[in-house]
């Protein structure tokens, strides 16, 4: 069953009072244990969708269900990895993890074992007592991932977690993320604007456009382990890119036609 969203709609009110539709009647299903990416251009509402799932934003209409039961997203069992590490720089790596665990009400007696466990999962077993500012950007992002894992979520929400890193570091982290996903069996919802990243990582990719609608959903059936430079992946990537640009062009023409039409009506 996994995670299902149905007819999700979200509008923001702009400063001039106009309503701006970010998510327009979105329906999608994320299989439990799968790696699903939400892909789209900036401003398409993909982060908004993730924030709704994290219970950080409200929504106007629609429904979210987990394992067949409708839930309030604030009660979804999630861990969140942000684009920036968002660590408490004044707390050690360990204290950053205990912060999240305490917030989630995980018993103090378990903290020590969990910290050791998740830090070795992300390859930072030796950095328990280190302050974040002494770590590299990639290591800080690993701490961010460890923090999300520490609360033992069923669903891992990731908002462009590697986009601020250099490509070499990002590549390493992507491979480690896949290892981690395969060993832990978590359901991952991964937001990105990087098509090759999405194709390399995902089982499923959901494409969002700037009108707030899903215009394409594809399964990536290339067997794992994958090589980021694999010919099949590159071919899929280029096809999806074509589809994407065709759609965006059509959308722009549509919008242009609508606005000139609207102008005449006035």
């Amino acid at each position: 069953m996994g995670l299902r969203i149905q007819h999700l709609t979200k509008t923001f009110e702009e400063e001039d009072g106009d309503e701006f539709v970010v998510l327009d009647d979105i329906s999608a299903t994320v299989d439990e244990g799968s790696f699903t990416s939400i892909m789209g251009p900036s401003g398409c509402g993909k982060s908004t969708l993730l924030n709704i799932l994290a219970g950080l934003h409200t929504y106007d209409a629609g429904e979210v269900a987990w394992r067949g039961e409708t839930v309030d997203p604030t009660n979804l069992p999630i861990g969140y990895v942000f684009q920036e590490p968002r660590l408490l720089n004044w707390r050690s790596v360990e204290e950053n993890l205990t912060f999240a665990m305490r917030a989630q009400g995980i018993p103090e007696s378990d903290h020590d074992a969990i910290v050791g466990d998740v830090l070795s999962t992300v390859g930072l077993a030796d950095e328990r007592d280190t302050y974040p500012l002494r770590l590299s950007g990639g290591m800080r992002q690993r701490v961010g991932i460890a923090r999300a894992l520490a609360v033992d979520p069923e669903i891992l929400l990731m908002d462009e977690p590697f986009s601020d890193l250099d490509e070499l570091t990002a590549r390493n982290l992507r491979e480690d993320l896949i290892d981690l996903w395969q060993t832990t069996g978590k359901t991952i919802v991964f937001v990105t604007h990087d098509i090759s990243e999405a194709v390399f990582l995902s089982d499923e990719i959901v494409f969002l456009d700037t009108a707030g609608q899903i215009f394409n959903e594809v399964s990536i059936d290339v067997p794992r382990p994958r090589d980021p430079d694999d010919r099949d992946l590159l071919a899929i990537e280029s096809d999806l890119m074509d589809d994407f640009f065709d759609h965006m062009e059509a959308l722009e023409e549509e919008t242009a036609a609508a606005s000139t039409g609207g102008g005449r009506a006035d």
Partner: peptide, 15 residues
């Protein structure tokens, strides 16, 4: 950003 992070992990106001 840190406040949002704390919110995402459901940290209490005291925390």
């Amino acid at each position: 950003d840190l406040l949002t992070m704390a919110d995402a992990f459901d940290a209490s106001p005291a925390m």
